[in-house]
Structure formats: C-alpha cells, structure tokens
Design a protein around this nucleic acid. Structure first.
Lengths: 197, 197
DNA sequence: TAAATAGTGTCTGTTAGACACTATCCG
DNA sequence: CGGATAGTGTCTAACAGACACTATTTA
C-alpha cells in the first residue's frame, strides 16, 4: 500500500505509509494506529522488518524509521483513509515508482520478508476465504513468490505438513474443471517441514 | 559480552553494552563506536537484530534500543574498556544472570540470530585461525548450536558447499590422532546448500 | 598397543521435482 | 466431445543420518 505525499519532499508522489510514535505507545501499537488512520483497517498480523537510521535519510530532520510488514488479506476497493490517500497497488508497480527517502530499500526488504514468511508459516491461508481449496492456496504462493508451482507436487507438499490444513469433507466446483476438496486452516503457527521456494 | 552497570537501576549488575547514538551517526556506526568504547575492539561484522521500544522498557526515560549482533572472533583475556568493565562470558551464564530492562529478551533474540547465521554464511570460519581444519570448524558449530555433530557427515557436508573452504595442501598434527588437512576460507558469502542444524 | 582424531565407504530412508495418468467438471 | 482443473502414481536424483571401516598420529 502507498500513500500520496501531502508535504515536501516529493509532494503528490507515492510513499510508504507511516508516522510518529506516541509517547505512551509500543512500536507495534503505533504501527497499527498509523495503518488504521491511513486506511481505516485493523491489521491482524504485523512483523518488524528492521530499523533505518542514516543521518541523512530525511532532509528535514534526524529521524529513525522502524519498518513493519502488515498482512491485510481483505483489501477494500479503491482508496481509503483520512490522513492521506491510501492507494493499493501491486508491489512491482510501487517498486518502479519514484519513492522518497529510503523507502525503496524498505520495500525491497519487506517483500523479501513476506516471501520467506510463506515458507515457514501458514500465513498464505489468510489471503484465502476461511474455506479454501489447495488451488486457492497455491495461487497465493505463486503470486507472492512470482513463479509457477507444479500443482501435483504442491498438493502433496501442503498435505504432508502436519496441521497446515484440515479437510472439511466438502467439495466445491469453481466453474471449470473437476471440483476441489475444501479445507480450513489447521492450528500450527510454524510449518514443519517448510514449503521451500 | 556484558558490562557492569555504573548507574541505577541494577547498579553493579550485568547488562548488555550500549549507549546513545550521535546526531551525525549511522546506526551501525554507533554500534561500532559503543563497542570500541567499551571493549577497545574493532568489530568486523555487525548485524541488526531488531528494535525494542516498549514505553516502560527503561523506567528513567522513553528510549528505543536497536539491537546489533557483533561477531568478535579474537577476544582479549580478561576485562577491557574505559567506560565500563567489559566482561566476557558464555551466553548461558549471561542468560542465567539477572539482566535489567528487556536485555534478557534481546540476548535470546541475538543468540537465535547467531545460530541461524551459521547455517547460511561461512561466519563460523572467522572464529578459527586463518588456516584451519574441518575439525576446528566443527567445534565452532558444536559450541554455537549446543549439540554434537557427526564428524564424518560434517566433513562431507562442508566440502560439498561450493566455495566454503579451500584446501591448502598442508596437513597439521594437533597432538592426538591423525593429522588433518588444512583449509582457508573460500570466497562465498552465502552457503549453498546451507548447513542445517 | 590403546586411544584419539581424520577421513572414506556405504546403506537406508526421506524428499523434491518431473511427468504420466486418472477423475470430474463445463460448454 | 475438448479443454480445464483436481488429484494420484511413480520414477529418479539428491540428500541426510547412521555407522562400519580405514588411516595416522601420540602416549
């Protein structure tokens, strides 16, 4: 997600959302609040990626930025927010944009973190509806990792990870092709073994 | 490494080294400087682990701590430093100590980071002399990971990682047992495949 | 010689990927 | 029927751990 910058430098350009922490706030609480103010959304999952503190990273003042990766499976249509315009776009478009400060590096770091989260956690399922098919899950992996995965092998790999998914017993037909079995998310927080890229 | 605290809280107790960043300093530069001031040593390798900013983490004032992991292969004997007493000790002793603020959590996070560095990078070799044996290397892994490794399998595993180590052609006898071939560090920065724990 | 460490051979079970094949839908 | 997607079977190459065995030293 990006915002349109309201002030200089780069007024009107795109940037990563953010803001200043309050005196009585935790880092994660502040990240949640900023995202809520700029998108109106509550985030389920946040993860600290890193801290950026080069003396010249912001020409206006000495600042430190603590970068968080937020997982937001259900995006609203169009733009939202009150502080600034929240704009949803594919990451490669945002990477190609002219981002201010050290935001390009931040975005690169966050993308890498997101990709590796999919290997070790069942977080991809949160981008699917509560009841999903293995094909749904595979499409999330393919989008985030940016590469095609073999459906047959993916099928088995997911099912071999204990506690990743739980069969519902139902099947669903999604237009074309053989109807797929449906699953709900299991109860593990870490995938053993991980799904390697 | 720990220091003896000069001030309250927990005066005279152990704590992780640290200090305040200067206005014109990068985060990593500040970490290097603090370590130099407290130990007199130059560090070769630093890695940011995370940032800690709970509002009550320091009762004296609102602070943020950016934690760095430093790799210091050549420790001097005894204590060093001018600001405070630098004390070298095994991490489990330090973990068992009564550390102030959120330093226990920091230490836990840093240890986990160090362990995983050994899987993906040739950093363990920096704890050996420039010319070392596979046995030397194995002992570093055994200490950091805290478990015994099969010498035969470790041997092959290290040699199968392209660019990890380079044979010198010499052998060295270290007291007991058959003399070992010696190696120097290769030129890779990442191990493919990684040495799994 | 015994004990210790280095290094090789080899077996076994697991895994990853490739790909053929079957199953079941839609139009 | 053909095309699309789901799911299974199976083969192969790579890999990891266990462990027997050889090699070479010191005490």
């Amino acid at each position: 997600m990006a915002i349109r910058r309201a002030g200089e430098p780069n007024r009107g350009g795109l940037a990563l959302p953010g803001g200043f922490i309050h005196l009585d706030e935790d880092l994660e609480t502040a990240a949640r609040r900023e995202l809520r103010e700029e998108t109106g959304l509550e985030v389920d999952y946040l993860e600290q990626v890193g801290t950026y503190g080069a003396p010249d990273r912001d020409p206006r003042a000495r600042t430190f930025a603590v970068l968080y990766l937020a997982v937001l499976p259900n995006l609203p249509e169009g733009s939202t927010g009150k502080d600034a315009d929240a704009i949803w776009m594919p990451v490669d478009e945002l990477l190609a944009a002219d981002l201010p400060f050290d935001h390009h590096q931040m975005l690169t770091d966050a993308i890498e973190r997101a990709r590796s989260k999919l290997e070790y956690t069942p977080i991809a399922a949160s981008f699917c509806r509560p009841v999903f098919t293995i094909g749904d899950l595979r499409r999330v992996y393919e989008i985030v990792w940016g590469k095609h995965l073999n459906p047959a092998n993916f099928q088995r790999k997911v099912q071999s990870v204990e506690g990743f998914v739980r069969e519902t017993g139902d099947v669903v037909s999604e237009g074309r092709g053989r109807p797929a079995k449906t699953y709900t998310l299991g109860d593990v927080t870490t995938l053993h073994p991980p799904l390697r890229r």
